[in-house]
């Protein structure tokens, strides 16, 4: 549908004003909010994720697209809340591990996951290992995502994974790790279920972990 395509395009171009206007128009035209979300806002962010991964666009375009997506979601929010939070693909608990103050990569993953339709519980930076475990339980999360920039904080990822296993969540909660110095080899070594080297890739890996296409 042209209108949904236009919403996606304006998310891609980071035009928050236009997205707000078009989302309102779509609702006026009785298009269901979940369709607007999926085929408009999320479709736009998916394109952004691919372009970013392919280095066709850079951080400014992603940040502006995220602002546009948020503007659109704000219009949909009352309807989503009425429907019990909307049709989410799953819940991801996300954070930068203990001792590490770096947030940029983690924030990008947050943007991409929300764009793809996940519920994201962002615990912020310098997150203690037991907090990851506690929140994974209380939020009934399917996935825990951990970020670290420093080689000295990377080992905390292992502590979180061990904590989840000890809590008996090995099969119920999947883990994914990332960050500049993190490698697939490191992820394998600490027993993480997945690794991604960019934010777009994180969404793909998480979908694979959950058996979504």
């Amino acid at each position: 549908m042209e209108l949904l395509k236009a919403i996606a395009e304006n998310v891609r171009n980071g035009n928050a004003g236009k997205v707000t206007e078009l989302v309102k128009k779509a609702l006026d035209e009785k298009i269901h909010w979940s369709v607007v979300l999926e085929k408009g806002l999320s479709a736009g962010m998916e394109v952004v994720g691919h372009l970013f991964k392919d280095e066709e666009i850079f951080l400014p375009e992603v940040l502006m697209a995220a602002k546009a997506m948020d503007a659109g979601q704000k219009v949909l929010e009352p309807l989503m809340l009425g429907a019990g939070g909307g049709r989410k693909l799953g819940t991801v608990v996300l954070g930068t591990v203990k001792g590490d103050m770096h947030n940029l990569g983690k924030n990008l993953v947050n943007i991409m996951l929300r764009g793809a339709g996940f519920e994201v519980v962002d615990l912020g930076v310098d997150v203690a290992s037991d907090i990851f475990v506690e929140r994974a339980i209380s939020e009934k999360a399917q996935v825990v995502g951990m970020s670290a920039l420093l080689t000295t904080t990377m080992p905390h990822m292992r502590t979180v994974i061990e904590g989840l296993h000890k809590a008996g969540l090995k099969d119920r909660v999947k883990t994914i790790v990332g960050g500049a110095c993190v490698t697939q080899q490191f992820a394998d070594k600490i027993g993480a279920d997945a690794y991604a080297d960019n934010a777009g890739g994180a969404v793909t890996r998480i979908k694979e972990l959950l058996g979504l296409k």
Binding site: D54, E55, I57, F58, L59, P60, E61
Partner: peptide, 11 residues
């Protein structure tokens, strides 16, 4: 280093 050559984080 990116596939387009050197870029800052902001492109």
């Amino acid at each position: 280093t990116t596939k387009k050559g050197f870029r800052t984080m902001m492109g």
